[in-house]
Write a protein that binds this DNA or RNA. Sequence first.
DNA 1: CGTTTAGTTGAACCTTATCAAGCCCTGTGG
DNA 2: CCACAGGGCTTGATAAGGTTCAACTAAACG
Lengths: 213, 213
Amino acid sequence: MLDDELEALSAIGRRKLFPGGQVVTWSGDPNTLCANVVSGALKVTASTEDGREQIVGLLYQGDFAGQPFVEEAPLTITALTDTDLCLFPRPAFERTLGAYPRLERLLLQRTMRSLDDARQRMLSLGRKNAQERIAGFLLDVIERTVPRGAPMPLSIELPIGRGEMADFLGLTIETVSRQLTRLKSDGVIAFEKGDRSCTIVNRAALEAIAYPL
Amino acid sequence: MLDDELEALSAIGRRKLFPGGQVVTWSGDPNTLCANVVSGALKVTASTEDGREQIVGLLYQGDFAGQPFVEEAPLTITALTDTDLCLFPRPAFERTLGAYPRLERLLLQRTMRSLDDARQRMLSLGRKNAQERIAGFLLDVIERTVPRGAPMPLSIELPIGRGEMADFLGLTIETVSRQLTRLKSDGVIAFEKGDRSCTIVNRAALEAIAYPL
DNA sequence: CGTTTAGTTGAACCTTATCAAGCCCTGTGG
DNA sequence: CCACAGGGCTTGATAAGGTTCAACTAAACG
């Protein structure tokens, strides 16, 4: 981002801290905000009326949240951990986009990447079994957090708990738990000091599971 | 779209007819093209290496196809019926976007709508059962093709066959077929003159199935 | 400590996939 | 004109993968 763009954004943005668990935007509410994630993590969820929930996206440091040019927020956004957001009132943000074409270009590219992402997840949700989804998820976490070509046994910190993994992968808590213990007893992964810190013992095996044939 | 934008686009576009079944873009190939759908219909698919397929989007008249600013095409696009496309070489299309900010804005808005769409489908694929998916699909077709507030018994033409419905909904052909016959015997829909032309007998019932509670 | 919360494990059940036949329509060639 | 082959769809029987319900464990917290 260029200096004047950053400046223009910071002129309309205000920082706000959201404690873990707090909802930033409710689905159906008037869409008043866009934001940049300064630190922390958020989940973007879609729900059925009867309470079933699907996590349709996870947002981390540097990610963009919200939808300009839309009157009603279609999705609920919730802080997973304590999260620092830089909030932009939507109308001001839209004006800034108009004034800085490079910014709009950037947003377009990000939106298209999100779309690609969403489509890969549709493949996963529609056509993969529980093992493949879990393995794919672990590989995604690796890609997101581990520097390229780090030496094996890798250690990763799962960004979400079992329940949220289930909501992300379209499974139940129990299935997620069982598949993880299966990967563990197969010697592919291991857990130490807690259910969230996971060691990748055999990455190749994980890839073979996630991407068969 | 404004006159000069249309002109700029038509200057770089060339029309081409694709017969039904023909692939327009292969996933993994160099991404050389974007296009507008002049007439006909296309499917956008993601696949696993071992051949499972998920339809991640359907494109109709007026829809935009392709991904500017990406070097490798991530998805396969196939003509469902004979389809007339207006093709743009990607580099020229990107230059045109830069020259006509309103055009880029338009594309951004479309991309965001596609993203919303994709996320709703994630909810469907991850959290809804076969009946709900089928009912939701039928309602989507209605929304797309029937004028608002048309009188009941509605008649719609299914844009795709059973196999493609299955690939779209993350089900099998057999399950799609069974759920449709179930809706038929429940008196919610009916079929005349062929498997593709479907009469909506009871739209409210369909909505109650698609959106429980 | 007792309570709560997250995770694991087990057993029964259910939805959907899988495999296999059969049907209907269309187009083709004898 | 009829037999027949092929594609798209339906239907049935069976099986598997996941869900559900329930009990249990372990760590966290007052």
